[in-house]
Amino acid sequence: MSEHKQFSHVNAQGEANMVDVSEKAVTTRTAVAEGFIKMSAETIQMIISGGHAKGDVFAVARIAGIQAAKKCADLIPLCHPLMLSKVQVDFEVQADKQQIRIEALCKLAGKTGVEMEALTAASVAALTLFDMCKAVDPAMEIGGIKVLSKAGGKTGHWQNQQAQKV
């Protein structure tokens, strides 16, 4: 990390501080985040076949992820409340790796980025999958939550190079 970078949410006195974005330009901003939940092959098959007693697991987790993105500022103390224009949560079954990949995209026209909203959407979607399947598979594992890309604002487009190598 370069020496001139500083934490944005800490003021000169070292105190927690909400960033003032009032002078920033309104631009279209997007962020994509991902996460994974590992589970048994039987649990994955139960989800795919629709045989789960709690119903459509992906539909519930998708709605939970969307709702979480909208509530991000209520959960993360220094996040700005945002008027999201799009939240999309998708699932990719990776049966060969015994996991489900969760991808969340958030978008708005605003003065601050939406990385936290995308991370929150992916995280809560994974937690919801866990909650819905824990009676069948309590040994599931959530991980790999990260920002894949972001665009908009003065920094422009950023791509997670480590994510590309995995």
Rank of each mutant, 00 (worst) to 15 (best):
K86I: 09
N17H: 15
I142P: 12
H80G: 08
K134C: 08
L148V: 01
W158E: 09
N160A: 01
T27K: 10
L127T: 06
A104C: 11
L78S: 00
V21G: 06
A53T: 15
Q98G: 04
V124P: 01
M1P: 13
Q99S: 05
P138L: 09
S22N: 09
K165D: 08
T128D: 11
I76R: 04
S85P: 06
F58A: 04
D90A: 05
E141C: 12
N160R: 04
K111I: 04
K97E: 15
G14W: 11
Q162T: 07
F91M: 05
M1Y: 07
D56I: 08
L129S: 00
I37F: 00
M83K: 04
K86H: 03
Q6V: 13
K150Y: 06
N11D: 15
M116C: 12
S8H: 08
V114D: 07
V60S: 04
T43A: 03
Q94Y: 14
A73G: 13
M39A: 10
I76A: 11
L78C: 03
K150M: 03
A73R: 11
V32A: 01
P81A: 07
V21H: 13
L127P: 07
P138H: 07
L84F: 14
H4S: 13
S40Y: 11
L82A: 09
V60L: 14
A41R: 13
M132C: 00
K54H: 05
A33D: 08
D96S: 11
V124Y: 13
A31M: 07
Q99Y: 06
H52I: 02
V57M: 03
C133R: 04
E141D: 06
V32Y: 11
A135F: 13
G55S: 10
S85T: 14
R101W: 02
E117Q: 04
D137C: 06
E103Y: 07
A59M: 09
A151M: 12
I48N: 04
N11F: 09
K70S: 06
V57A: 13
D131Y: 03
M140C: 11
V166W: 01
I63C: 06
K71N: 15
S40C: 13
A59E: 15
D74V: 02
A163R: 08
G144D: 07
K107E: 14
G65R: 04
I47M: 08
K111Q: 10
G152R: 06
G153Q: 09
E23P: 01
H9V: 02
C106D: 10
T27I: 07
K38M: 11
F130V: 07
V147G: 03
S123M: 10
E103Q: 15
D90S: 14
G156C: 06
M46A: 15
I76S: 09
C106E: 11
T155F: 03
V57N: 07
K71S: 14
Q161W: 03
W158S: 03
A59R: 14
V57G: 05
T112P: 08
K97Y: 11
V87P: 02
D74A: 13
